[in-house]
């Protein structure tokens, strides 16, 4: 009953926040792309969040932004020294890194161990590469946005990517989420039922990778952790049932993104950080409500 009420309240508040946010942007003649970038980025991560928890991939999800951090730096180096598109280089390098981390977990390496090794490697290498970029190339703004994110500076390419990956994540979660959650609940029976576990895991690694790597510049690798992990944790506390918790997780993401955008434009603050802060407040409220 309480779960149903909080679900309805979440729908209502999210709709209001989206309307307010769009009205404010249009009313003040700001580019509407800002809204789509931050809301769709947040939607992509929020929709995957509940699957990450149920499939016990928190360590991979925590490692993935670090892969994005390193890949973004290497992408700059590759595009300058070899040529080609930075964004494409970043995606290719980042996906290779995420698959390596995912393969380690799949082959039975303890997720905590593999995440520790992977985060240590990608963080130190990423810092090394970005220092190299900062001291040798004129990419200062790009480097700052990779770290703290700036959806308001996103190119049309990234705006389009955010919309596509946001929609793709929602479609993905509603189409195969049930199977992935079942695998997370009883992997032995999933095998007996004939589900191809590797295929579902690979598809989830791919979605996590495409989301975190492709959106690193708009969200920033620091706040990707928050966007990826908190909506699922909030939904898990507040909801019963798979479909409802997936929807709740997406609603929480849209709510935090749209309110965050509104506040950040009004007060001239970093949008990703404000949205992340709202997610943290929602998490604390949920934990208090559930007595945790």
């Amino acid at each position: 009953m309480r779960s149903s009420l909080s679900y309805r309240i979440a729908i209502f508040i999210t709709v209001i926040s989206v309307i307010l946010s769009i009205a404010y942007i249009i009313g003040n003649s700001y580019p509407i792309e800002w809204f789509f970038t931050i809301v769709m980025s947040s939607t992509a991560m929020g929709s995957l969040s509940i699957l990450i928890y149920t499939r016990r991939l928190r360590y991979l999800a925590a490692s993935s932004p670090h892969a994005a951090f390193l890949a973004a730096g290497l992408g700059i180096v590759a595009s300058v020294s070899i040529g080609g598109n930075w964004f494409l280089w970043t995606i290719i390098i980042g996906m290779v890194l995420v698959y390596v981390a995912g393969y380690m977990i799949y082959k039975g390496v303890d997720p905590e161990d593999s995440a520790s090794i992977f985060v240590a490697f990608s963080s130190s290498m990423g810092a090394l590469v970005l220092y190299y970029v900062l001291t040798r190339y004129s990419y200062g703004v790009s480097v700052v946005s990779i770290v703290i994110g700036d959806p308001l500076l996103s190119s049309l390419e990234i705006v389009a990517y955010s919309i596509v990956i946001g929609l793709l994540s929602v479609i993905y979660v509603y189409s195969v989420g049930r199977e992935i959650i079942y695998i997370g609940s009883d992997i032995d029976d999933a095998r007996l039922a004939g589900l191809k576990i590797w295929l579902y895991d690979w598809s989830l690694y791919t979605m996590i990778g495409l989301t975190t790597i492709g959106l690193v510049k708009s969200v920033g690798f620091v706040l990707e952790h928050v966007y990826l992990l908190l909506p699922g944790a909030i939904a898990a506390m507040m909801c019963r049932g798979v479909a409802r918790s997936i929807t709740f997780s997406i609603l929480v993401s849209i709510l935090s993104a749209s309110i965050g955008l509104l506040i950040s434009i009004s007060l001239d603050l970093a949008p990703s950080a404000v949205s992340g802060g709202i997610l943290i407040i929602l998490f604390v409220i949920s934990a208090i409500m559930k007595g945790r």
């Binding site: 509940i50 928890y53 149920t54 959650i181 997370g184 049932g241 918790s245």
Partner: peptide, 15 residues
């Protein structure tokens, strides 16, 4: 998983 939201009904039906 302590974060799992699947209900008994869903668990049985999904299987």
């Amino acid at each position: 998983s302590k974060y799992s939201t699947i209900t008994v009904r869903e668990f049985l039906c999904y299987s």
